[in-house]
């Protein structure tokens, strides 16, 4: 009895492995994330409806090609991430690691392109409270306010996702995550898809509504 209890103790102290619970936890967390962006979407559409003209003009100022490239990059990265999980489930550790590395590279490409977009705009003097900005139309100020906030927050999520993928790679390497215990990498994958999904909305909202 005492022995059994000690075993149970051990069990509880370290938490037990329940992939279903992990999945429920992750999905509920993703709800939170979706609502976090949801509030921003509400703000965007409210202001789009009150400042339609300004928003369309500003949208045309964004670089659609860069936005489109980034969309393709993120979509592809989602694919490589999904393949990495599938590979691990089939026991192909090496392939899984390589695919995750590719995902990381795509994440980096995305952030670099984003960096160029931002720095170009800032170079032009389009940034919050800049002299140029405060003299532009109110809708323009709101558009760029939301642009920087939302793509910034999304960029932050990409960075966090990349760190999580790094951790997942480490865990796969050391054997903490493997063929039969893959909850962690699966959840990282879910997170990465969310990041991708958010961008799929951000891209048309900011880049494509213009003339």
């Amino acid at each position: 009895m005492a022995n059994h209890s000690a075993e149970m103790h051990e069990h509880a102290e370290h938490g037990h492995y329940d992939p279903m619970a992990n999945k429920i936890g992750m999905w509920t967390f993703l709800f939170t994330e979706a609502l976090l962006f949801g509030a921003l979407f509400i703000a965007f559409f409210v202001y789009l409806s009150t400042n339609t003209g300004d928003f369309l003009d500003c949208s045309s100022e964004l670089n659609r090609i860069m936005g489109a490239i980034n969309t393709v990059v993120l979509l592809t990265s989602s694919l490589t991430m999904a393949l990495a999980i599938a590979a691990l489930q089939r026991g192909n550790k090496r392939l899984s690691l390589n695919l995750m590395l590719m995902t990381l590279v795509f994440a980096a490409v995305f952030l670099i392109i984003k960096y160029f977009e931002w720095s170009h705009k800032i170079h032009l003097g389009i940034y919050p409270k800049s002299e140029l900005m405060v003299n532009r139309a109110q809708g323009d100020q709101l558009f760029y306010g939301l642009y920087y906030t939302m793509t910034g927050l999304h960029g932050l999520h990409v960075a966090i996702g990349a760190v999580l993928i790094l951790i997942a790679m480490r865990k796969v390497q050391t054997g903490g995550v493997h063929k039969t215990k893959f909850s962690f990498i699966e959840n990282v994958g879910l997170y990465w898809h969310l990041v991708d999904l958010v961008w799929i909305y951000l891209f048309p909202m900011f880049y494509l509504i213009g003339r």
Binding site: I42, A43, V46, Y47, T50, N51, P128, M133, V134, A137, Q138, G139, Q141, L142, Y144, G145, L146, Y148, T149
Partner: peptide, 14 residues
């Protein structure tokens, strides 16, 4: 960043 500031067209009611 301009979001709620009425001077920049923002909406305090939002």
């Amino acid at each position: 960043v301009a979001i709620f500031d009425p001077a920049a067209g923002g909406d305090p009611i939002l």
